[in-house]
Amino acid sequence: MKFLCVSCDEAMKLKEVNPPERGSLTVVYGCPRCQHEIAMLTNPYETQVVASLGVRVGGESAETEGASKCPFSGVVQSMGGGPEDLKIGFPWTPEASLRLENMPEFARPMAKTGIETYAKERGLTQIDAQVLEQAKNFFGM
C-alpha cells in the first residue's frame, strides 16, 4: 500500500506505527513537501492478514518488544506456548538469549523449557553459551 498527497502529487512517507490496540494498527504517514499528515487505521482483519505474512509494518526500524533476529518478525505470535511458558526459571546470559532469537518465536517456549530442564537436571544455575553447546551435543545435533 502506498499513499499519495494529492495536492502535491508526492508520495507520503511512513512516520509512525502505533502498536495494535484491540486489533487495530495506527500508521501515520506524512507528505515530505507540505507536511500534511494522515493516519491509516486498520481493522482487525487487515491487521491479522499483515501479521499472518510474518512481517512488521515499518520494517526493522519499527519499535517492537522482543524483536527477533529472524527475518520474520514479532507479529507472528508464539503458539504452543503463551507468555506463561516464557516465564524464566533460569537466568540466561545475553549471549544465550541472543542465540534463542535465532529460532522462530513459536519454537522458543518449548526449546526454553527443554534447555532449562536439561540444566536443572545437572544442577546448573544459569544458561550460557557453553550450556547450550552441551545441550546440543546431548540432544544429538
Binding site: 486489533g23 482483519y45 491487521t47 492478514v49 501479521a51 510474518g54 529472524c70 507472528v76 513459536f106 519454537a107
Partner: peptide, 26 residues
Amino acid sequence: ESVASGSSHTWRATKEFTVLRELLAC
C-alpha cells in the same frame, strides 16, 4: 494467536505458510 477473532478461515493458511517459511529458513 489472532487479533481478529472468529475469522481464522481468512488468514490461517497464510499463517501456516509463514510458519513453514520460518522453519525452512531458520
